[in-house]
Computed example of a mutant assay.
Amino acid sequence: MTVRTFSCAVLGSTSLVHDPATGLTHTPARRLPSGRLLLDDTEVAAWPLIAQRQVRTRLPLNICWSPVVRCNLACPQCLDDKTLTEADAPDRRRIAGILADCGTLGNDISGGEPLLLRDLPHLLEVLRNGPSTVSCTTNGWHLERRATELAPVLDAVRISFDGPDAASHDRWRGAGSFERAASGARAAVAAGLPVQLQAVLMRSTVRRAQSVVDLAADLGAIGVTFLQMLPIGDGAHLAKTEMASDADARHHVGLVQVPPGTRIRLRTRELADGFTVVRADGQVYRNVHGATGIQPTRPLLTAADLRLPLPQEART
């Protein structure tokens, strides 16, 4: 049994529990108070899953915030838009305050590479003042030296891996990146941070699903989230050669033999469609066209700017 932090809220008329490591949302089998809660992750994992489209709410269940465009790596499958202008530090604090108070279940800080931000601990602290859980997605390069600093203000860290060893991972992310990410994962686990590996599924990588899961178990991670490649940003030019179908991804992930206590998740493009992202320019974006594109909606000035259309409005 592992007890860690989850968030609970009633959105619409549905009671929900969000896992900051896996990014999954569950419907609890018992009544829970709203807010940040310590729960047994084995119990939560057994509760039914629920997707955004199944909940009658204008509020995104969880949000990805990418406050930084800069990155120390140059991954060809990156979906960030490097042409955007980054908001300055005061504007980042303003956005963190809006996200902390908006009532969503989970906030994940991504990038670019968020560990390049000197004010990252402060931003995480602001987010943690709200009722949601807070996670960070990183390439892991700087995680070993920052794990102790970040552990008190993070509920989980997600580390990108494109393979189970240096030969496969470094092909996509550059020399030395596997060892830095693996050392970062071990340091985070030692600091008491729940760790989830994240692997982008491409035609070149989909057959490594089992070995990435085995790596997660070896590193002491909770598990692996397999992310279907999105043909957005730099990754658009890889779509013709590297984009695997959702059916193919389900097939290969379904073959994985999962070690006891390890959690795996497949986020298909179908599930990623409509997902809410706040990018470095301070605008709210949503994945569109089956998550094969992304569109800006409006600048994030108040929590109302995050609102989703209700299901019947989306069909009209």
Rank of each mutant, 00 (worst) to 15 (best):
C8F: 08
T27R: 15
D41Q: 09
G254C: 10
T83F: 00
A303S: 14
L11T: 02
I50N: 03
L227C: 02
L38Y: 00
D81W: 07
G140T: 10
I109C: 06
P131L: 06
G233M: 13
L16W: 00
D218V: 07
A190V: 00
M1R: 13
A291Q: 06
E144Q: 15
I95Y: 01
V256K: 01
L120W: 07
V157G: 12
R4N: 05
D234S: 15
A249W: 02
F275D: 12
P131K: 11
T268K: 06
A188R: 07
E270I: 06
V189Y: 06
L219W: 11
T137K: 10
A156K: 05
G106L: 08
S66A: 15
V200C: 10
S34P: 03
P131Y: 00
E43L: 14
G103Y: 10
E144I: 08
G23V: 12
Q77D: 12
A167D: 11
V212A: 00
A239W: 09
R171H: 13
T2L: 11
D165I: 12
L123N: 06
G112E: 13
Q210H: 01
L238A: 08
L306A: 04
G106Q: 14
W172R: 13
P311E: 08
A166R: 15
G261M: 06
F6S: 07
L301M: 12
D248W: 13
T22C: 02
G282T: 09
S7C: 09
P296D: 08
K82H: 14
A185I: 12
T316S: 10
A185W: 01
R307A: 15
R180Y: 02
P67R: 04
A209R: 01
A221V: 03
C64S: 09
A9N: 11
P296H: 08
L16H: 03
I109R: 02
I159E: 01
P121R: 09
G235H: 01
F6I: 06
D165G: 13
T138D: 05
L201K: 02
S7Y: 07
R265P: 00
S168V: 12
L230N: 11
P152T: 05
L143K: 08
L266W: 01
K240C: 04
C136Y: 02
R70T: 10
A217V: 11
E149F: 00
R286A: 12
S183Y: 01
A87K: 04
Q77I: 15
E242A: 06
G223Q: 07
G112K: 12
V126A: 03
R53N: 07
P121K: 10
G282S: 08
C136P: 00
D246I: 06
L306D: 05
V284E: 12
A45N: 07
R53S: 09
I222F: 02
L120E: 10
C64V: 08
V256I: 10
T276W: 06
G235K: 00
C64Y: 02
L310W: 13
R208F: 12
A216I: 03
C8R: 15
L37F: 05
P33M: 05
G112A: 15
H169L: 09
P259I: 07
Q54W: 05
L308D: 12
P260E: 10
E113N: 05
V224R: 00
R250H: 10
D40L: 06
V278D: 02
V256E: 04
I109V: 15
C75S: 09
L310K: 11
L120A: 07
P33Q: 09
P309M: 04
L193K: 05
L84G: 12
L301V: 15
